[in-house]
Design a protein around this nucleic acid. Structure first.
Lengths: 203, 203
DNA sequence: AGCCAATGTAGACACTGACAGCATTGTTGT
DNA sequence: ACAACAATGCTGTCAGTGTCTACATTGGCT
């Protein structure tokens, strides 16, 4: 489709789509604005109308990544299954996304590091944590988890899951299958959260 | 020092040292081989005698990072304090390193991703996990942890600690102090490991 | 002393991201 | 209908980069 008119019609979306493919396949370092322009059938410099910088493009990519990830996490925690199950589903979704799109995930987390990150990016990257806090609070209210700082519990859980995800994508599990590592981590974290009640209360 | 002789005398070390500084301060993307050569007072292309690629230099940097980190972890687990304390010390050391050298840590984990990673790099990056397995096995033998798969327990613990570390460096703790997040994570993981005994045995 | 490998230099090349000026298009107000 | 105008795309240019090749200098070995 598209008869090579002067105006592309949907350049921004086309650039983002192709950039996703390239980054997903070769990593962010393998992305060249000029090559990207060639792929999409447009001249170099055309992208500047839609993305000031290369970094701006990567930021937009990161935003899309977070959106897809957040959507996936949202699906996982939806429903009215026991909280332990929904918790596990969310963890699986997170690690699964990471394993499928390691370079994208990496881009997502390196993008916001570069000081002048867009407001969109900062916002969409901070969605998951409060959602997790809400889930844990609900679990506490339902009596599946002991009372305590939901914020702290969420940080712990998020860290653990994010950790398995990066370990898996960075091939640091020393041969341990990532599915097993994920399952074990989620189970262990849940045990830790449950045990937090019967233990000496954390500061 | 150094009278600008034709031969530098210790170029490899000088390049690595300066590269460490630059990456630590500006990230791996801020490293330019040519600028690096200027900094060290040598012509561009000189580095090629010591590092085939830019990637080779980054690999060497990563190796050094792992060496320092491993040394720090080794110090932490040494001694004969209770295993819970040594476990905590190791976690603190890991996160502390990550917070002090975020860009280096990132470089360490991205380096080995690029297929043709040196044998040195692969080896030094896989040191921590077996050490952790040994620590946990010892804790099990001493009765501080219930019996079970030490390998699985190590993966879980490593993932959690690595997770807090990356969350802290990527500013994803939503204002939660990283020291608190680290302490909470380590405590929770330990509880999870302890509780693994009294629970339904994990596959 | 004389050779030779190791190390550093100088030049070239293709490529990159960014910028400026121009060309083409779609839209909007009259 | 049509003129302004903003949006979008094109081309040329620039400094900077990583890598390669040919050459220069050095120190160590016999």
């Amino acid at each position: 489709m598209s008869e090579r008119t002067y105006h592309h019609g949907n350049l921004r979306a086309a650039l983002l789509e192709r950039a996703w493919e390239v980054v997903d396949a070769e990593g962010a370092d393998g992305l060249s604005l000029r090559q990207l322009a060639r792929d999409v059938g447009v001249s170099h410099g055309a992208s500047a109308r839609h993305f000031r910088d290369k970094q701006a493009l990567l930021d937009a990519l990161a935003v899309e990544g977070f959106q897809r990830l957040n959507a996936s996490l949202g699906d996982a925690v939806a429903g009215d299954a026991p909280f332990a199950d929904r918790f596990r589903a969310a963890g699986d979704a997170y690690v699964s996304f990471a394993v499928r799109h390691p370079a994208i995930l990496r881009t997502m987390y390196t993008a916001k590091h570069h000081a002048a990150a867009s407001a969109d990016l900062v916002e969409v990257s901070h969605v998951a944590m409060p959602a997790l806090v809400a889930l844990i609070t609900a679990a506490q209210d339902a009596g599946e988890l002991p009372p305590g700082s939901a914020q702290e519990a969420a940080v712990v859980a998020f860290a653990a899951v994010h950790g398995v995800a990066t370990l898996a994508t960075d091939d640091l599990l020393n041969g341990f299958p990532w599915q097993d590592a994920t399952a074990a981590t989620i189970a262990s974290v849940w045990r830790g959260l449950v045990a937090a009640g019967s233990d000496a209360p954390t500061t």
